[in-house]
């Protein structure tokens, strides 16, 4: 393997230079960003769940402390999380298909199609989530 010249390394900043880039770059950059958000949430989720080890009272106390107000005040964050997961999931399916050589000639169309489907699913999710917490329409 060729010895790389470290002087030219841009680092992860090369992942977030959106100026004059195509839609594929946006898909790529957002995939990385949403991946980091999901990873962060995963560990946050584990941290909250780990309170179960200290017993029911401890777990209930922490859940009560982060859910107050008329509805679950974390609901907005939950919706944002759902947006991130649906985006990442849809783009991930597209990338998996691409790696099998499917849809390579219509890659941009495939991206838009999957994201539209993801946003419709997100809308359905949000509707049932609001129903679940008692917000009527």
């Amino acid at each position: 393997m060729v010895e790389a010249n470290k002087e030219i390394k841009e680092g992860i900043w090369s992942w977030v230079k959106f100026l004059r880039k195509g839609i594929g770059y946006f898909a790529f950059a957002l995939h990385r960003l949403t991946g980091i958000v999901i990873l962060f949430y995963l560990y946050l989720h584990y941290t909250v769940l780990s309170n179960l080890l200290r017993g029911q009272a401890s777990y209930n106390a922490i859940v009560r402390s982060i859910t107050y107000g008329p509805y679950d005040s974390f609901l907005v964050l939950d919706f944002l999380l759902a947006l991130v997961i649906f985006y990442h999931g849809a783009n991930g399916v597209r990338l998996a298909l691409n790696e099998f050589g499917i849809g390579l000639n219509h890659n941009k169309a495939l991206f838009y199609t999957f994201e539209i489907i993801a946003m419709i699913l997100l809308g359905i999710f949000d509707y049932y989530a609001l129903q679940f917490v008692g917000v009527g329409f």
Binding site: K21, G24, A27, F28, A29, N98, E99, G101, L104
Partner: peptide, 24 residues
């Protein structure tokens, strides 16, 4: 990771991102 910028900038219309997926 298939950002596709290689294909976007190629002055000769070559499609490296397509080739990489085929290579996989």
């Amino acid at each position: 990771h298939f950002s596709g910028e290689c294909t976007e900038v190629c002055p000769k219309g070559v499609d490296p991102s397509f080739a990489i997926q085929k290579l996989r």
